[in-house]
Design a protein around this nucleic acid. Structure first.
Lengths: 179, 179
DNA sequence: ATCTAATAGTTACTTGTGTAACTATATGGA
DNA sequence: TCCATATAGTTACACAAGTAACTATTAGAT
């Protein structure tokens, strides 16, 4: 029996026991958790070939795509949803590879700037193509229309959660079509 | 600036640098990871009041809703996507609370059965109502129609990933309407 | 100008969870 | 019937990532 089927049997039984259970909410939350585990496991396989963890990869992509290919640890922590000590450790690892370097923020002596090096940029050129293929392979089999809809739902949910925990944030503009 | 907005700026820049990037796939995978972090953080808040980790809670729910409120560790590990040693530790914690107990499988001396105790059932009656409310509160603001669609997408993606990594599994039947 | 509160990043410590290895037991093929 | 292989669960060890505490620095109110 498929694991998901087994899980859904449990869910059905839970609902039988507790008709007041918000079954859709419970299952959606659980589906997200299951998806995350699988997706990270799959990505971990190919990242391991480059001796990268998922966190290191996330940070590297943030740096690579930032203005002047430079970021500071607190911003990275904020956007990636991971702790500042973890950004410190990931930065340590990437520095050890020679892929990034830390410099002093000229305007704020507390702050550090993490910049991509030429070596790091070269590494990214090598890693990105197989990673794009991996991401594509991880996509479910959806039509373009379904992907637009699904992506929009995920984004809205994220925004709802972000806005709920930081009510002072203004509601975000609708998604711009990035493509 | 919203964290998600910041992230999407990075994504836009990545796409400018790499037009071949599968932007929808990359963003969807990343959205799942972000969602999982937030959802688990939110759930952790209320679970902490009951001195439960997310893993312990997951296992407890699996046991609570299983036939005869009994499960074995390997099945739990398989369905929840977590390691057998972790199931052992979670079981240790729940045993220490008096909420579950281990018994010998009468048919297989290797196997352990984890059964909910009366005390555990009582604890569940107490924990479930606030948890239902928490799950409901975590749901994004979607219409019933959108929730059906969204839930279906999540489920299909999970099935695609499960089938891709275990090709011998038959494609699952479409979701039965649980309600 | 002063001082309190907040922030940036690191270090030390803690918690969560994986893998490897182990023992005991079951399965299934020869 | 025997034996190799696989499985169940635990223990030991390793790794990932969080929190608390710290120092240095900045921001902003008075």
């Amino acid at each position: 029996m498929l694991k998901l089927s087994c899980f859904e049997s449990r869910l059905a039984e839970l609902q039988r026991l507790h008709p007041e259970m918000p079954v859709q909410a419970v299952s959606m939350v659980r589906f997200i958790i299951f998806l995350q585990r699988r997706l990270e496991d799959e990505l971990a396989g190919i990242l391991a070939q480059h001796d990268l963890s998922h966190s290191g990869w996330s940070l590297l992509m943030m740096i690579y795509s930032a203005p002047r290919q430079t970021i500071n640890p607190s911003t990275a922590s904020d956007v990636l949803g991971q702790s500042r000590p973890h950004m410190t450790r990931m930065t340590d690892e990437l520095c050890a590879r020679g892929w990034v370097e830390r410099t002093q923020d000229p305007n704020d002596r507390r702050a550090v700037e993490i910049c991509l090096t030429a070596k790091g940029a070269a590494a990214m050129q090598e890693i990105l193509p197989p990673m794009w293929r991996q991401y594509e392979g991880l996509s479910g089999r959806f039509s373009a229309e379904e992907i637009d809809l699904f992506s929009g739902f995920l984004r809205r949910w994220l925004l709802d959660l972000e806005t709920a925990t930081h009510p002072d944030n203004p509601p975000a503009a609708p998604a711009k079509d990035i493509a």
